[in-house]
């Protein structure tokens, strides 16, 4: 692994060295390091590029690292990762993708197609960070597709973060929830320059007492554009909530497009959206505490995306 890849690895997953337990590190469309653990098995797919991550039932408090790195330009990576989470398991998945194009004018792309199958009463925390780096004009593109199928009583929490350097992202997440299943998605996004980011969610709450909570916080700077589309279908007694909170700066543009459909009298669905520039009184308050205008703005943004 070269220095660029090591740096990307550190940034997307916090790893300085190979972790304990199960991991799979993908670099430039190939798996470069892998380890299974007693409870978590990682195997290559036979028909296409990607891996199956199989978690035994009742596995507790284990981490799986599956970072994907693109450390040079001209790479168009497409990977299929499937996660099979056994009943009652409770694990954390640290994913993430770093794309570096150096000073090249050729772009690079990573498209991860992830499917999660959560067994009954299992619990998954999924943490994913996207980073783009490079000084050249080559476009860095990350288009993740995520599909989540949750069995009865399962819980999934997804935290996705993309703070800088990715020129274009189209994220598409779908989920189907059975009885008592709960899905929480926290998305943090900051776009610069002329970047574009679209985040689209489609969630079907098919099981009684299932619930979903989508929380998006984003900042659009310069001439960047963002679109947040949340489509939630409440098909039975269930609870759905989506929230898009965005700060626009410079010439940034943000659209929030909710579509909440109650197909049952017992479905409770809420969408909230707030888009606007940083409130003037927030800036003034921090300046009366001694911060400069620039420092105040940075604090407000850092806190908002924290």
């Amino acid at each position: 692994m070269n220095d660029i890849a090591k740096k990307l690895l550190k940034e997307v997953s916090g790893l300085d060295e190979m972790p304990k337990g199960a991991y799979n590190i993908r670099e430039n469309s190939k798996s470069v390091a892998r380890q299974s653990s007693e409870n978590i098995e990682i195997v290559s797919k036979e028909d296409k590029s990607g891996i199956d991550i199989i978690v035994k039932p009742n596995t507790k408090s284990e981490n799986v690292f599956i970072p994907a790195l693109v450390s040079c330009s001209g790479v168009h990576d497409l990977v299929y990762n499937d996660f099979f989470i056994g009943e009652n398991a409770d694990i954390t998945i640290i994913a993430g993708c770093g794309v570096s194009t150096g000073d090249s004018c050729d772009g690079s792309e990573h498209n991860g197609i992830h499917r999660f199958f959560l067994g009954k009463n299992s619990k998954v925390r999924y943490v994913e960070k996207h980073i783009g780096e490079g000084t050249g004009t080559g476009k860095r593109v990350i288009d993740p597709v995520t599909e989540v199928i949750q069995e009865e009583g399962s819980y999934m929490e997804m935290e996705t973060t993309q703070i800088k350097g990715v020129d274009s992202t189209r994220r598409f997440t779908t989920a189907k929830l059975k009885d008592g299943a709960k899905l929480v998605i926290k998305e943090k996004l900051m776009t610069h320059g002329e970047q574009f980011a679209e985040s689209k969610f489609e969630v079907d709450m098919d099981g009684e007492d299932s619930s979903v909570n989508l929380i998006s916080r984003s900042v659009a700077r310069d001439y960047s554009r963002q679109t947040f589309i949340s489509k939630i279908n409440g098909n039975t007694r269930c609870m759905g909530h989506s929230e898009c909170d965005a700060i626009i700066m410079d010439h940034g543009v943000v659209s929030a497009i909710p579509e909440i459909t109650a197909n049952s009298l017992d479905a409770t669905l809420i969408h909230e959206a707030a888009i606007g520039k940083i409130a003037g009184d927030q800036m003034i308050k921090l300046m009366t505490l001694g911060l400069t205008e620039g420092e105040a703005e940075a604090k407000i943004i850092d806190g908002f995306l924290n």
Partner: peptide, 25 residues
């Protein structure tokens, strides 16, 4: 002098309606 410069020289101002911030503790 700006708000910041006055603050740095030793003037504090408690707002009548304090400001709220998302994410700042």
């Amino acid at each position: 002098l700006s708000i910041t410069e006055r603050a740095q020289r030793g003037i504090s101002f408690g707002f009548q309606q304090p400001v709220r911030f998302k994410g700042i503790t």
